[in-house]
Nucleic acid binder design. Structure first.
Lengths: 72, 72
DNA sequence: TTGCAATGTAAAATATACTTTACATTATGT
DNA sequence: ACATAATGTAAAGTATATTTTACATTGCAA
């Protein structure tokens, strides 16, 4: 039931982008550190707007940051 | 303040896809007709998961359905 | 070893997406 | 003219994303 889940590469992208910290990413995307933490831990998926903001910060397409894939 | 807004082409895509009705799209994406209506009317943006589902239904990349653009 | 930066856990409060129900409007076909 | 399908408006309720606060852990540098 549900079939697919949303995964993300935020952690990897942070390190690729000058080892950006969770707090720094939170700051740039206008949310709190807890929100970034929860999303990285996949406790919940971000809103579409936040997903776009994070993608923008990494200068990468949304689908390179978030993937909607079958859960194994 | 905010700079950007989320726009979408759901309406156009519905018509391109066999004139799919709002109710039909709602059905396929597992939400109610009101939700599709509200998103088309840009009353609010969908969750990332719903955005992915809708894109899947139209067999098109998410960014072809939703755009995060400067508000004119 | 002490201190600090980064990350993690947790819980209560708020904002926003989404549902449910009900009714109004518009267009189309018969 | 009537019936019906599709779309629109609206309001109250539920679910989930996000905030706020507070504290624990880990690693690294002085």
């Amino acid at each position: 039931m549900a079939g697919k889940v949303i995964k993300n590469n935020i952690r990897v992208l942070r390190f690729q982008n000058d080892e950006m910290t969770q707090a720094a990413l939170a700051d740039k995307s206008g949310v709190t550190r807890q929100t970034i933490l929860a999303i990285e831990a996949a406790k919940y998926a971000p809103s579409l707007e936040l997903a776009f903001k994070i993608s923008d910060i990494f200068s990468t397409p949304l689908e390179d940051v978030f993937q909607y894939v079958d859960k194994e």
